[in-house]
Amino acid sequence: MIRRILSLAILALPTTAQAFPVTVQSCDRQVTFAEPPRRAVSNDVNLTELMLALGLRDRMAGYTGISGWKTLDERLRADIQQLPELSPRYPGREVLLGADADFYFAGWNYGMNVGGEVTPDTLAPFGIPVYELSESCIHVMEKPKASFEDLFNDARNLGKIFGVPDRAEALIESWRKDLAAQPATGATRPRVFVYDSGEDAPFTAGRYAMPTALIEAAGGVNILEDFAKSWATIGWEEVIARDPEVILIVDYGEVTAEQKRDFMVSNPAFATVTAVREDNFVTLDYVAATPGPRNIEAVGILAEAFARAGE
């Protein structure tokens, strides 16, 4: 409720007129907008929430890539209201053209694949500019490891693109204050493993994925902070060798968080892992573990879990 009231307060702020055209940096490209988009499309639940947090629902033609992978929770379902889902998974070009889209907010592996049908290059001839999620830029360029600056950068750039820079700066400032108010976890920095999915080999978060930033902000360290990947698959042997003290489960898809926990607890291969032995598990919804407005509350959830693990 506090977050919803704060969002409404941000939307009520007077907006300083912004001159167009405006140019923003999107990964390794500069993208110029002659005017604010009027029929934007976002892909994935976290990018859609960021658009909504900035009060841009009336500028959207719809969204893609949610129901085919995840379930809308009550908060997002209420915010989306009558916005149509144009495609349950990644959209093809024809979906965006059929929606008369004039903007696509997506990321690499968040609605676009390198060399795929839908990319900034393939959409340019149809007059559909693309803004790329900052966290995902590692797939097309070198960048620093994931941080909250990725999220702030996206909010700021969307504010410029849509001509609402004051809203964006107010939102960023509220996030910074909330982060600063998070309780400290103590002197220890628990070793954390991010378990997204997979039994034969786990899909996890490396150096360039948002959970690394969330874990650090909450006072822990991702055991794969030195893994020079975003979201990727590794071997269980590496996880066992690094002996995580806390296991962060990302909850989405057909396999529940409880099923993922049961898999690890019941498997003798993990019996020596501290987090399994001491039952130190914490769960984040996908929308909180990927770049978006719920990252702030995610830090609080993790900080509480880390504090319990240290008791």
Rank of each mutant, 00 (worst) to 15 (best):
L214A: 15
L214H: 15
L214W: 13
L214C: 14
L214I: 09
L214P: 12
L214K: 15
I215V: 11
I215F: 07
I215K: 05
I215L: 11
E216G: 14
E216Y: 09
A217C: 05
A217R: 15
A217T: 02
A217F: 04
G219V: 05
G219R: 10
G219L: 01
G220T: 03
G220F: 08
G220R: 15
G220N: 09
G220D: 06
V221W: 01
V221Q: 13
V221S: 09
N222K: 06
I223H: 08
I223N: 05
I223E: 04
I223R: 06
I223G: 04
L224F: 09
E225Y: 12
E225Q: 12
D226E: 06
D226Q: 08
F227K: 03
F227N: 05
F227V: 08
F227A: 03
A228H: 14
A228Y: 12
A228S: 13
K229R: 15
K229Y: 11
K229L: 05
K229M: 08
S230P: 10
S230G: 10
S230Y: 11
S230D: 10
S230W: 01
S230N: 12
W231Q: 02
W231S: 07
W231R: 01
W231T: 00
W231D: 01
W231L: 00
A232K: 14
A232G: 00
T233E: 11
T233Q: 13
T233N: 05
T233K: 14
T233F: 09
I234P: 07
I234D: 02
G235D: 12
G235A: 09
G235R: 08
G235K: 11
G235Q: 04
W236K: 12
W236H: 13
W236F: 07
E237K: 00
E237D: 10
E237P: 06
E238I: 12
E238P: 04
E238F: 06
E238M: 13
V239M: 05
V239T: 11
V239Q: 03
V239G: 01
V239K: 02
V239R: 03
I240C: 10
I240W: 05
I240F: 03
I240V: 13
A241R: 13
A241F: 00
A241P: 04
R242G: 01
R242S: 00
R242V: 01
R242H: 04
R242F: 02
D243N: 14
D243W: 01
D243H: 02
D243S: 03
D243K: 02
D243C: 04
P244C: 09
P244G: 13
P244V: 09
E245D: 09
E245N: 13
E245H: 03
E245M: 09
V246G: 02
V246M: 06
I247S: 11
I247M: 06
L248Y: 02
L248I: 03
V250Y: 14
V250L: 15
V250M: 11
V250P: 00
Y252R: 06
Y252W: 12
Y252T: 05
G253S: 08
G253L: 04
E254I: 12
E254V: 14
V255F: 03
V255S: 04
V255N: 02
V255E: 15
V255G: 14
